[in-house]
Design a protein around this nucleic acid. Structure first.
Lengths: 148, 148
DNA sequence: TTATTAAATGATATTAAGGTCTTTTTATAA
DNA sequence: TTATAAAAAGACCTTAATATCATTTAATAA
Protein backbone atom coordinates (compact mmCIF):
# COMPACT_ATOMS: atom_id res chain seq x y z
CA UNK A 1 0.00 0.00 0.00
CA UNK A 2 2.42 2.68 1.21
CA UNK A 3 5.97 3.00 -0.08
CA UNK A 4 8.59 1.74 2.33
CA UNK A 5 10.03 5.24 2.59
CA UNK A 6 6.60 6.53 3.64
CA UNK A 7 6.34 3.85 6.32
CA UNK A 8 9.77 4.82 7.65
CA UNK A 9 8.71 8.47 7.61
CA UNK A 10 5.58 7.81 9.67
CA UNK A 11 7.37 5.57 12.15
CA UNK A 12 10.18 8.11 12.51
CA UNK A 13 7.75 10.95 13.13
CA UNK A 14 5.87 8.92 15.72
CA UNK A 15 9.11 8.11 17.54
CA UNK A 16 10.14 11.76 17.53
CA UNK A 17 6.71 12.61 18.97
CA UNK A 18 7.06 10.11 21.81
CA UNK A 19 10.49 11.46 22.72
CA UNK A 20 9.38 15.04 22.28
CA UNK A 21 6.61 14.53 24.79
CA UNK A 22 9.43 13.70 27.19
CA UNK A 23 11.13 16.93 26.09
CA UNK A 24 13.85 15.06 24.22
CA UNK A 25 15.15 15.63 20.70
CA UNK A 26 16.36 12.37 19.23
CA UNK A 27 18.98 12.25 16.46
CA UNK A 28 19.17 10.20 13.27
CA UNK A 29 21.10 7.29 14.76
CA UNK A 30 18.69 6.82 17.65
CA UNK A 31 15.59 7.20 15.48
CA UNK A 32 16.80 4.78 12.81
CA UNK A 33 17.65 2.21 15.45
CA UNK A 34 14.31 2.50 17.22
CA UNK A 35 12.19 2.22 14.09
CA UNK A 36 14.41 -0.54 12.67
CA UNK A 37 15.29 1.31 9.49
CA UNK A 38 18.66 1.86 7.77
CA UNK A 39 20.51 4.83 9.25
CA UNK A 40 21.59 6.71 6.14
CA UNK A 41 18.24 6.19 4.48
CA UNK A 42 16.41 7.40 7.56
CA UNK A 43 18.60 10.51 7.48
CA UNK A 44 17.49 11.16 3.89
CA UNK A 45 13.85 10.80 4.85
CA UNK A 46 14.16 13.07 7.89
CA UNK A 47 15.76 15.68 5.64
CA UNK A 48 12.83 15.50 3.26
CA UNK A 49 10.36 15.86 6.11
CA UNK A 50 12.30 18.78 7.58
CA UNK A 51 12.54 20.51 4.20
CA UNK A 52 8.75 20.32 4.01
CA UNK A 53 8.49 21.50 7.62
CA UNK A 54 6.70 18.41 8.83
CA UNK A 55 9.33 18.42 11.54
CA UNK A 56 12.05 20.78 12.74
CA UNK A 57 15.73 20.07 13.12
CA UNK A 58 18.74 21.53 14.88
CA UNK A 59 22.31 20.94 13.78
CA UNK A 60 25.31 20.69 16.06
CA UNK A 61 25.73 19.58 19.66
CA UNK A 62 22.49 18.82 21.40
CA UNK A 63 20.75 18.93 18.03
CA UNK A 64 18.14 16.55 16.73
CA UNK A 65 14.56 16.43 15.51
CA UNK A 66 11.47 17.88 17.17
CA UNK A 67 8.15 19.66 16.69
CA UNK A 68 6.90 23.11 17.43
CA UNK A 69 5.50 23.04 20.98
CA UNK A 70 6.68 19.43 21.13
CA UNK A 71 3.55 18.33 19.33
CA UNK A 72 2.82 17.27 15.76
CA UNK A 73 -0.63 17.67 14.27
CA UNK A 74 0.57 16.48 10.86
CA UNK A 75 -1.89 14.01 9.34
CA UNK A 76 -0.97 10.78 7.61
CA UNK A 77 -2.19 12.48 4.46
CA UNK A 78 0.38 15.27 4.87
CA UNK A 79 3.19 12.76 5.21
CA UNK A 80 2.06 10.53 2.37
CA UNK A 81 1.65 13.59 0.18
CA UNK A 82 5.21 14.74 0.82
CA UNK A 83 6.78 11.29 0.52
CA UNK A 84 5.03 9.82 -2.52
CA UNK A 85 2.44 12.26 -3.79
CA UNK A 86 -1.30 11.63 -3.71
CA UNK A 87 -1.60 9.14 -6.56
CA UNK A 88 -2.67 6.53 -4.06
CA UNK A 89 -5.86 8.51 -3.40
CA UNK A 90 -6.70 8.93 -7.07
CA UNK A 91 -5.45 5.87 -8.92
CA UNK A 92 -7.91 3.49 -10.56
CA UNK A 93 -7.84 -0.05 -9.17
CA UNK A 94 -7.71 -1.39 -12.70
CA UNK A 95 -4.90 0.94 -13.73
CA UNK A 96 -7.04 2.85 -16.23
CA UNK A 97 -5.98 6.39 -17.04
CA UNK A 98 -9.45 7.89 -17.34
CA UNK A 99 -11.52 6.03 -14.81
CA UNK A 100 -14.26 7.99 -13.04
CA UNK A 101 -17.96 7.82 -12.29
CA UNK A 102 -18.73 8.91 -15.87
CA UNK A 103 -16.48 6.29 -17.40
CA UNK A 104 -15.93 3.67 -14.69
CA UNK A 105 -13.78 0.57 -14.84
CA UNK A 106 -15.52 -2.67 -13.86
CA UNK A 107 -14.19 -2.35 -10.32
CA UNK A 108 -14.80 1.36 -9.90
CA UNK A 109 -17.60 1.49 -7.35
CA UNK A 110 -16.30 -1.17 -5.02
CA UNK A 111 -12.72 0.08 -5.16
CA UNK A 112 -13.90 3.61 -4.40
CA UNK A 113 -15.11 2.41 -1.01
CA UNK A 114 -11.65 1.10 -0.13
CA UNK A 115 -9.86 4.17 -1.40
CA UNK A 116 -12.20 6.57 0.38
CA UNK A 117 -11.93 4.68 3.64
CA UNK A 118 -8.15 4.94 3.47
CA UNK A 119 -8.43 8.61 2.56
CA UNK A 120 -10.59 9.15 5.62
CA UNK A 121 -8.09 7.49 7.90
CA UNK A 122 -5.25 9.48 6.36
CA UNK A 123 -7.06 12.74 6.89
CA UNK A 124 -8.09 12.08 10.50
CA UNK A 125 -5.10 10.29 12.03
CA UNK A 126 -2.25 12.54 13.09
CA UNK A 127 1.22 11.85 14.42
CA UNK A 128 -0.07 12.93 17.82
CA UNK A 129 -3.15 10.69 17.73
CA UNK A 130 -1.15 7.66 16.60
CA UNK A 131 1.59 8.30 19.14
CA UNK A 132 -1.03 8.60 21.84
CA UNK A 133 -2.11 5.01 21.18
CA UNK A 134 1.41 3.97 22.06
CA UNK A 135 1.62 6.25 25.08
CA UNK A 136 -1.56 4.66 26.40
CA UNK A 137 -0.15 1.18 25.87
CA UNK A 138 -2.74 0.32 23.22
CA UNK A 139 -0.17 -0.09 20.45
CA UNK A 140 3.54 -0.50 19.76
CA UNK A 141 6.11 0.84 17.32
CA UNK A 142 8.14 -2.34 17.07
CA UNK A 143 8.10 -5.98 18.06
CA UNK A 144 9.49 -5.22 21.49
CA UNK A 145 6.87 -3.40 23.46
CA UNK A 146 9.25 -0.74 24.60
CA UNK A 147 8.51 1.63 27.44
CA UNK A 148 8.46 5.14 26.02
CA UNK B 1 -2.26 -0.64 -4.65
CA UNK B 2 -1.78 -3.41 -7.21
CA UNK B 3 1.43 -3.91 -9.18
CA UNK B 4 1.26 -2.70 -12.77
CA UNK B 5 1.78 -6.27 -13.96
CA UNK B 6 -1.24 -7.38 -11.93
CA UNK B 7 -3.37 -4.65 -13.45
CA UNK B 8 -2.31 -5.74 -16.94
CA UNK B 9 -3.11 -9.34 -16.00
CA UNK B 10 -6.63 -8.51 -14.86
CA UNK B 11 -7.35 -6.29 -17.85
CA UNK B 12 -6.00 -8.96 -20.21
CA UNK B 13 -8.11 -11.67 -18.65
CA UNK B 14 -11.22 -9.50 -18.85
CA UNK B 15 -10.57 -8.80 -22.53
CA UNK B 16 -10.08 -12.51 -23.25
CA UNK B 17 -13.37 -13.17 -21.46
CA UNK B 18 -15.26 -10.63 -23.55
CA UNK B 19 -13.89 -12.12 -26.78
CA UNK B 20 -14.40 -15.66 -25.54
CA UNK B 21 -18.07 -14.97 -24.98
CA UNK B 22 -18.13 -14.21 -28.71
CA UNK B 23 -16.34 -17.54 -29.25
CA UNK B 24 -13.13 -15.82 -30.26
CA UNK B 25 -9.58 -16.54 -29.02
CA UNK B 26 -7.54 -13.35 -29.14
CA UNK B 27 -3.75 -13.41 -29.46
CA UNK B 28 -1.05 -11.43 -27.68
CA UNK B 29 -0.90 -8.58 -30.18
CA UNK B 30 -4.63 -7.96 -30.11
CA UNK B 31 -4.88 -8.23 -26.32
CA UNK B 32 -1.95 -5.91 -25.65
CA UNK B 33 -3.35 -3.34 -28.01
CA UNK B 34 -6.84 -3.44 -26.52
CA UNK B 35 -5.71 -3.13 -22.91
CA UNK B 36 -3.09 -0.49 -23.81
CA UNK B 37 -0.15 -2.46 -22.46
CA UNK B 38 3.26 -3.21 -24.01
CA UNK B 39 3.12 -6.20 -26.34
CA UNK B 40 6.14 -8.21 -25.17
CA UNK B 41 5.38 -7.56 -21.54
CA UNK B 42 1.78 -8.63 -22.00
CA UNK B 43 3.06 -11.85 -23.58
CA UNK B 44 5.15 -12.51 -20.45
CA UNK B 45 2.15 -11.95 -18.22
CA UNK B 46 -0.12 -14.17 -20.31
CA UNK B 47 2.52 -16.91 -20.08
CA UNK B 48 2.55 -16.63 -16.32
CA UNK B 49 -1.23 -16.82 -16.16
CA UNK B 50 -1.28 -19.80 -18.53
CA UNK B 51 1.43 -21.61 -16.55
CA UNK B 52 -0.79 -21.26 -13.49
CA UNK B 53 -3.79 -22.33 -15.52
CA UNK B 54 -5.74 -19.16 -14.97
CA UNK B 55 -6.20 -19.24 -18.71
CA UNK B 56 -5.53 -21.69 -21.53
CA UNK B 57 -3.48 -21.13 -24.66
CA UNK B 58 -3.03 -22.69 -28.06
CA UNK B 59 0.04 -22.26 -30.22
CA UNK B 60 0.12 -22.03 -33.97
CA UNK B 61 -2.42 -21.00 -36.56
CA UNK B 62 -5.77 -20.06 -35.11
CA UNK B 63 -4.17 -20.13 -31.68
CA UNK B 64 -4.67 -17.65 -28.87
CA UNK B 65 -5.95 -17.40 -25.33
CA UNK B 66 -9.20 -18.68 -23.92
CA UNK B 67 -11.00 -20.31 -21.00
CA UNK B 68 -12.50 -23.70 -20.41
CA UNK B 69 -16.12 -23.49 -21.55
CA UNK B 70 -15.35 -19.94 -22.65
CA UNK B 71 -15.86 -18.75 -19.10
CA UNK B 72 -13.50 -17.72 -16.31
CA UNK B 73 -14.51 -18.00 -12.68
CA UNK B 74 -11.06 -16.91 -11.51
CA UNK B 75 -11.32 -14.37 -8.70
CA UNK B 76 -9.24 -11.21 -8.41
CA UNK B 77 -7.61 -12.92 -5.46
CA UNK B 78 -6.46 -15.81 -7.65
CA UNK B 79 -4.86 -13.44 -10.11
CA UNK B 80 -3.24 -11.20 -7.49
CA UNK B 81 -1.93 -14.29 -5.74
CA UNK B 82 -0.26 -15.60 -8.89
CA UNK B 83 1.11 -12.23 -10.00
CA UNK B 84 2.45 -10.75 -6.77
CA UNK B 85 1.72 -13.07 -3.87
CA UNK B 86 -0.67 -12.26 -1.05
CA UNK B 87 1.49 -9.82 0.91
CA UNK B 88 -1.03 -7.12 0.12
CA UNK B 89 -3.63 -8.94 2.24
CA UNK B 90 -1.31 -9.40 5.20
CA UNK B 91 1.03 -6.42 5.29
CA UNK B 92 0.89 -3.99 8.18
CA UNK B 93 0.00 -0.43 7.20
CA UNK B 94 2.90 0.81 9.28
CA UNK B 95 5.35 -1.68 7.78
CA UNK B 96 5.87 -3.53 11.07
CA UNK B 97 7.00 -7.13 10.82
CA UNK B 98 5.01 -8.48 13.74
CA UNK B 99 1.83 -6.46 13.71
CA UNK B 100 -1.34 -8.26 14.79
CA UNK B 101 -4.24 -7.93 17.20
CA UNK B 102 -1.96 -9.07 20.06
CA UNK B 103 0.77 -6.60 19.20
CA UNK B 104 -0.89 -3.93 17.05
CA UNK B 105 0.70 -0.93 15.40
CA UNK B 106 -1.02 2.40 16.10
CA UNK B 107 -2.95 2.12 12.84
CA UNK B 108 -3.83 -1.56 13.12
CA UNK B 109 -7.58 -1.51 13.72
CA UNK B 110 -8.46 1.16 11.21
CA UNK B 111 -6.17 -0.25 8.52
CA UNK B 112 -7.65 -3.70 9.02
CA UNK B 113 -11.00 -2.40 7.83
CA UNK B 114 -9.47 -1.22 4.55
CA UNK B 115 -7.50 -4.40 4.01
CA UNK B 116 -10.45 -6.64 4.78
CA UNK B 117 -12.73 -4.70 2.48
CA UNK B 118 -10.25 -5.14 -0.35
CA UNK B 119 -9.86 -8.82 0.51
CA UNK B 120 -13.63 -9.20 0.30
CA UNK B 121 -13.78 -7.60 -3.11
CA UNK B 122 -10.90 -9.75 -4.33
CA UNK B 123 -12.59 -12.93 -3.18
CA UNK B 124 -16.02 -12.14 -4.63
CA UNK B 125 -15.26 -10.46 -7.96
CA UNK B 126 -14.40 -12.80 -10.79
CA UNK B 127 -13.24 -12.24 -14.35
CA UNK B 128 -16.74 -13.22 -15.45
CA UNK B 129 -18.50 -10.84 -13.03
CA UNK B 130 -16.24 -7.92 -13.96
CA UNK B 131 -16.54 -8.63 -17.66
CA UNK B 132 -20.28 -8.76 -17.32
CA UNK B 133 -20.29 -5.15 -16.13
CA UNK B 134 -18.73 -4.24 -19.46
CA UNK B 135 -21.05 -6.46 -21.46
CA UNK B 136 -24.01 -4.71 -19.84
CA UNK B 137 -22.57 -1.30 -20.67
CA UNK B 138 -22.08 -0.38 -17.02
CA UNK B 139 -18.29 -0.14 -17.31
CA UNK B 140 -15.45 0.08 -19.77
CA UNK B 141 -11.97 -1.39 -20.25
CA UNK B 142 -10.39 1.69 -21.73
CA UNK B 143 -11.05 5.36 -22.43
CA UNK B 144 -12.85 4.60 -25.64
CA UNK B 145 -16.13 2.92 -24.81
CA UNK B 146 -15.64 0.14 -27.31
CA UNK B 147 -18.40 -2.15 -28.44
CA UNK B 148 -17.49 -5.68 -27.41
C1' DT C 1 5.80 -32.20 -45.67
C1' DT C 2 6.46 -27.55 -45.81
C1' DA C 3 5.35 -22.72 -44.95
C1' DT C 4 3.20 -19.99 -41.89
C1' DT C 5 1.26 -18.48 -37.69
C1' DA C 6 1.40 -17.89 -32.94
C1' DA C 7 2.82 -18.91 -28.12
C1' DA C 8 6.96 -20.23 -24.96
C1' DT C 9 11.46 -19.38 -23.43
C1' DG C 10 15.53 -17.07 -22.07
C1' DA C 11 18.70 -13.29 -22.28
C1' DT C 12 19.07 -8.59 -21.93
C1' DA C 13 17.92 -3.58 -21.18
C1' DT C 14 15.71 0.31 -18.65
C1' DT C 15 13.71 2.68 -14.82
C1' DA C 16 12.44 3.67 -10.22
C1' DA C 17 12.81 2.52 -5.41
C1' DG C 18 15.66 1.62 -1.86
C1' DG C 19 19.99 2.30 0.29
C1' DT C 20 25.11 3.88 1.21
C1' DC C 21 29.01 6.93 1.57
C1' DT C 22 31.71 11.23 1.75
C1' DT C 23 31.89 15.97 2.28
C1' DT C 24 29.96 20.28 3.87
C1' DT C 25 27.53 23.22 7.00
C1' DT C 26 26.04 24.70 11.49
C1' DA C 27 25.75 24.77 16.40
C1' DT C 28 27.70 24.48 20.96
C1' DA C 29 30.72 23.17 24.82
C1' DA C 30 35.31 23.52 26.42
C1' DT D 1 38.52 30.22 18.94
C1' DT D 2 38.87 25.55 18.47
C1' DA D 3 37.32 20.76 18.77
C1' DT D 4 33.43 18.21 18.49
C1' DA D 5 28.78 16.81 17.58
C1' DA D 6 25.10 16.53 14.57
C1' DA D 7 22.22 17.51 10.44
C1' DA D 8 22.34 18.76 5.20
C1' DA D 9 23.71 17.82 0.72
C1' DG D 10 25.11 15.37 -3.18
C1' DA D 11 27.26 11.57 -5.54
C1' DC D 12 26.98 6.96 -5.96
C1' DC D 13 25.54 1.99 -5.54
C1' DT D 14 22.04 -2.09 -5.44
C1' DT D 15 17.86 -4.34 -6.22
C1' DA D 16 13.40 -5.19 -8.01
C1' DA D 17 9.91 -3.98 -11.32
C1' DT D 18 9.03 -3.04 -15.82
C1' DA D 19 9.97 -3.79 -20.53
C1' DT D 20 12.29 -5.52 -24.92
C1' DC D 21 14.28 -8.74 -28.21
C1' DA D 22 15.85 -12.97 -30.48
C1' DT D 23 15.24 -17.72 -30.66
C1' DT D 24 12.67 -21.98 -30.09
C1' DT D 25 8.57 -24.84 -29.99
C1' DA D 26 4.09 -26.21 -31.49
C1' DA D 27 -0.03 -26.20 -34.32
C1' DT D 28 -2.36 -26.08 -38.69
C1' DA D 29 -3.44 -24.82 -43.53
C1' DA D 30 -1.86 -25.45 -48.07
Amino acid sequence: MLAKSTEYAIRAMVYVQLQNWKVKRPGVVEIAHEIEAPEAYTAKILQTLARHQLLLSMKGRGGGFFYENNNSSATLFDIIHVMEGDGIFHKCGFGLKNCNSENPCPLHNRYLIVRNEFFNISKTETIASLSNNILEGKATLNRITAAY
